[in-house]
Design a protein around this nucleic acid. Structure first.
Lengths: 152, 152
DNA sequence: TAGAAAAGTTAGCCTATGCTAAGTTTATTA
DNA sequence: TAATAAACTTAGCATAGGCTAACTTTTCTA
């Protein structure tokens, strides 16, 4: 098989720096998005979001969740009284909805690509935070063209 | 348009926790992978990897690079004498090669999906760290089937 | 080759996210 | 309802990765 050779080429420093800065910014939002998405899911499925359940689902300790929730509250994503369950503010709810939408697109896309469900679940959790609107749009087109082919 | 409704369903706590733990682990490797990849590129394109160029390409300050390089040296990925240029250990070189391979697959895949070059560059930098072997394999199949269609 | 500029280091600060241990509040149950 | 258990918070620690300021070393150049 002929292997395409990609000529190694460095980007101009400022261009590449902009890319890395963009990734770091996305990265700062990751925990926030995971948290609000989980809170929204817990409220939808269990009736309320308790810290102990968040810790169990996230695989971290309760104090870690407590500390991160304090930041989210400070930043206006969530609302909660001490020792009580957690609520999303409108801003948090909005972020939860858009995060879930992206997550779903990435998940369905991976399934459409023939990836196993277990891997799709795992990878979509990491990938969702780094797919731009343009990429998500391309993924969505692919999903829709596949579902047309499959059903029509 | 009929919109597919995904029934909201929480994963079992331990299953979801495993996913998040996996993402956190991948996340810890991100900086390491970006650094060794960049060092390898700088050596290939400029003849040597200097800290100042790394800082410029990464978009961070020199002390930040210095600190992270100290960790990478501690962990056996790089080698360097004070005030001198930076070298990859065999372990670092191996990681650089596999990171670059993943990066290339993700980039080419996005291009094959019809995403613009600018977006593909940007997104591939974030996505590369979160695509499993299975997903990369699926991406690669897609690239190859497209290049067959295009050229044959 | 001396002085200036560039590169690299060190010190000290910050935030985010992990942890355990210990204490407080709330909920359960005997 | 009193005791226990569960949930939550607080304190204190660690690491990673950001930063600026100040210092040292190396390199360049006049």
């Amino acid at each position: 098989m002929k292997q395409a050779i990609t000529r190694r080429q460095l980007q101009p420093p400022n261009k590449q720096a902009a890319v890395f800065q963009h990734v770091r910014r996305a990265h700062q939002m990751e925990a926030t998005e995971d948290y609000v998405e989980l809170i929204d899911d817990l409220i939808a499925c269990e009736g309320e979001a308790r810290l102990v359940d968040m810790a169990r689902h996230l695989g971290v300790s309760q104090p870690t969740v407590s500390k991160t929730l304090a930041r989210l509250q400070r930043e206006g994503y969530v609302n909660s009284q001490p020792y009580r369950s957690i609520f999303l503010t409108p801003k948090g709810k909005k972020l939860a909805i858009s995060s879930r939408k992206r997550h779903d697109i990435v998940f369905k896309f991976l399934i459409a690509m023939g990836v196993s469900e277990a891997t799709a679940k795992r990878d979509s959790e990491g990938l969702e935070h780094h797919a731009s609107a343009e990429t998500l749009h391309a993924f969505n087109n692919f999903i829709e063209s596949r579902s047309r082919t499959a059903s029509g």
